[in-house]
Each structure stands twice: as C-alpha cells, then as structure tokens.
Nucleic acid binder design. Structure first.
Lengths: 219, 219
DNA sequence: GCCGTGACTAAGCGCTTGCTTAGCATGGTG
DNA sequence: CACCATGCTAAGCAAGCGCTTAGTCACGGC
C-alpha cells in the first residue's frame, strides 16, 4: 500500500454517507493507484481488477467502462478540492489569514493526496466529453473562489498585485504542481510544505502582514 | 498546425548544425504534437507517421521504436531548458536582475513551447530506464542552477527566504506548470506572462528591488 | 427442496497495437 | 548498361487490449 490516505476521500463527501459497496471502493482505489503511476491509457482493466483482487470481468459489474472509473475519480476529487477551497475562502478572519489557510490546506492536500491529485490534474484529456464538461465547471469554480479572495484583499488594502487573474493562476498553479513532484521521500511533511508555501504566496501577493511584528522565518 | 514554433528548438542545439534528415525532423515534430495532445501511450505509431506524411513503416527507418522518439524529444527539450537556465544564471548583473531574467525567459519558454513542455514534463514516466536516467540528471542540474542563484542573492543580502530548496522548487514549479495551462486563447502573450511572473517571484523571494522603485536606494 | 438473485470467474471475441518483412522506384557510380 | 544503397510503401504478424458471454457459487424466501 502507499502512504496516501485515499480512503479519507470517499467516505466524507457532500451528500452524506457513501452507499457504494466495498468492492466498488477497492476498484476505485486500485484505479487511482494505476492511473497515477502509469497514466490512464497505459493502465489496463486487468491491472485495476488485479489490484482490487478480482478477475477482469468483475470490474464491469460495478462500472460500465474504464473511462467511467476515471470520470468518477475525477468528479469526486474535484468536488473535494472545491469544498476545501470554499471552506477556506468563506472562513473567518481577514483576507490575509484566509489566504494563508487556503494555501496551507490546498498545498498540503496536493502533497498528501498526490496520487489522486495526479489523476485529477493530469488525466483530464482522457475524460469522455460529458464528464469533462462537469469537471471543467468545477475547475472554473475553484479559480473563481481564489480570485474572489484576492479581490477581497485588494479591496481591504492588504494585498497589492498587478493582474488579479495572473496572481490567482500563480496561486493555484503552485499548489497543483505539488502533486507532480511531491513524493514519500520529500524532506518536508505536507503540513510543513503548506506553511512555507503560505508564507511565499503571501509575499507574492504583497500582503501587509497583520500584528505580531516581523514574521521572519526561522534559520 | 499549431502556433508553437517547435522548429526553433532543433536546429539550434549545442554541438552545432543538426545533421538529421528532414524526414526525421518531421517525425519528431509529429510525435511532439501527438504526445502533447494525447499522451505517449494513447499515441499510435500510425498517428505519428501519418502526421509526418509517411506510411507507418517509414518511422522505423529513422527511429528504432516509438520510445526512442520520446527519448530524443525529452533529451533535447531538457538540454534546451538547461541551456536557457545556465545562460540566465551565469549572465551579467546582480542576483535580482539575473533572477528576473531567468523567470521571464523560463516562463515565456514554457508558454511558447508548451507543446514540447508538456511532453518533457508530463511524459517522463513513459521513458525507458536509461533515457530516464539521462533526463533526471539534466533536471537535477536545472534545479541546482536555480538554487545557486538564490544562494548568491542571499549572500549578497538582496533575497530573504526561509528554505532555499523550497523556494527553488517554487520558482521552477511555477514555470513548469505554465506548460500545463497555457493555451493559444490565453489573454497574455508569453512575454507579458514572463514579466508578471518575474515580478511575482522576486517578491516571493523577498527581493530588495534595485533602483527605479519605492525601496531606499543603496550606496 | 426449489427458485431467484447478486457477486463473481473462465474463456474468449473482435480489434488495435508496435513492429517486421518483402518489394519497389530513384539516383549516383563503375 | 549493371549494380546497389537509400527511402519509402503494402501487407501482415503476434501480442495485448477493452469488453462480453456463459456459467458457478453462496444465500435468502417460501
């Protein structure tokens, strides 16, 4: 098993309890592992079924196709990310505090769930058209939430950036790319990385750091 | 055809003139297009050959396998990126000026040559082991060059960052991810984007901006 | 005891894949 | 002219693909 706690992802979704049978969960998990490691097209249905401890044909009892598995993973992964972002943006505190928390959690999530993150961010092109449309809408929402928070900071006079859209792109981009390079062997924990990225992003946005004097990072 | 001037890439490589026959060039270009659009595994040798205006078998006169095409693209693409980075790091001016130029060019390159960039950065897993080793060494060199420049800035007292390695990661990460999201329809030109990202990165690194700015001019 | 149902497997179908083989037109060299 | 290397094509092979079919087994209701 990998260290990525994918199991965390599915039982805790909007809409309450997940009623999927356990075998379907095992298939989803095996698919995430394979898609992340080899990519959608290099993964065979035999890989997935074997990873879930079944024969190849059993897959089709729970999902109508290999692409349906990808669509499900992508939809759920994006929904979870959007929920995380919305919570941070709508949270308490001034824009600086909220942005710090957003980046900390967004980054840590992409490090912790890098396996899901890779599928979610780098296998979009393999989605069937209708599934892609759903996911593209979620991605747009994520970007809009970040933009909204930056604009709130500008209005409050605590951020200073040239182009809001470019800045929002940079913030989400930094987080997303973590799922590409982060590994088990990385020297920082997801939470450490989140804190450091939070610091970097706030400076990038020209944040007026509130209270507590100079927040110079340690040696 | 796309707007990506891939042709720029191959004729201008270290070692002088490129002696490859024109048909091999066409194959490389067609392979880049297909690999970038659909990924290595979803691309067939028939796709590539057709894209180059040949029959499927002609591919094997110039390259021994589909993987050899990928290896060549990856090797050349990484070599070009490393050359770009080295030039900027070893260039003239103080660390702030050199870092600005580095980010501007690194970013603009990943926007302009996003097609090659996608293959170079997102198809690594499909490389044969020996080709991967070569490319991994080049990637390490790129990161080391960036780290070196940040350390020079710290030594000169014009940068201020917590962890050098994390900062270097963030700088390269921002640039690399551009090749994922940048499209023809993006509102900014590669050069505009480069300038804006240069600005953002310098603030991220806590740069003391020289001259022309609001910061107190030095001796 | 018997049937229906849900989760699963063994076997395999039709198709596509990367790659090979055999052959053909062209053009330079004696 | 013959000779042959070069750069290509038409045809096709073995392997592996996504997915289907037919059937097995455990179990619950009557």
């Amino acid at each position: 098993m990998t260290s990525t706690p994918i199991a965390e992802l599915w039982p805790t979704l909007p809409g309450g309890a997940d009623t999927r049978p356990e075998a379907a969960h095992r298939l989803l998990r095996a698919a995430v592992e394979s898609f992340a490691e080899r990519g959608f097209h290099a993964t065979t249905t035999r890989d997935i079924a074997t990873g879930a401890g079944m024969s190849p044909a059993a897959l089709y009892i729970h999902y109508p196709s290999k692409a349906a598995l990808l669509a499900e993973i992508s939809r759920v992964g994006h929904a979870a990310t959007l929920a995380l972002v919305r919570t941070a943006v709508a949270g308490e505190g001034d824009p600086v505090t909220r942005m710090r928390r957003l980046v900390e959690e967004f980054t840590a999530w992409h490090a912790r769930a890098r396996t899901v993150g890779r599928v979610v961010n780098y296998e979009l092109h393999a989605l069937p058209e209708d599934a892609y449309a759903v996911v593209a809408a979620l991605r747009l929402d994520i970007e809009r939430e970040v933009t909204r928070l930056i604009e709130a900071g500008l209005a409050a006079g605590v951020f200073e950036v040239g182009e809001v859209r470019t800045a929002a792109r940079a913030v989400t981009s930094l987080g997303i790319d973590v799922s590409r390079w982060y590994t088990d062997r990385s020297s920082e924990t997801p939470e450490e990385l989140g804190r450091r990225y939070g610091e970097l992003v706030l400076r990038m946005l020209g944040a007026q750091l509130p209270g507590a004097g100079s927040s110079t990072p340690g040696p």
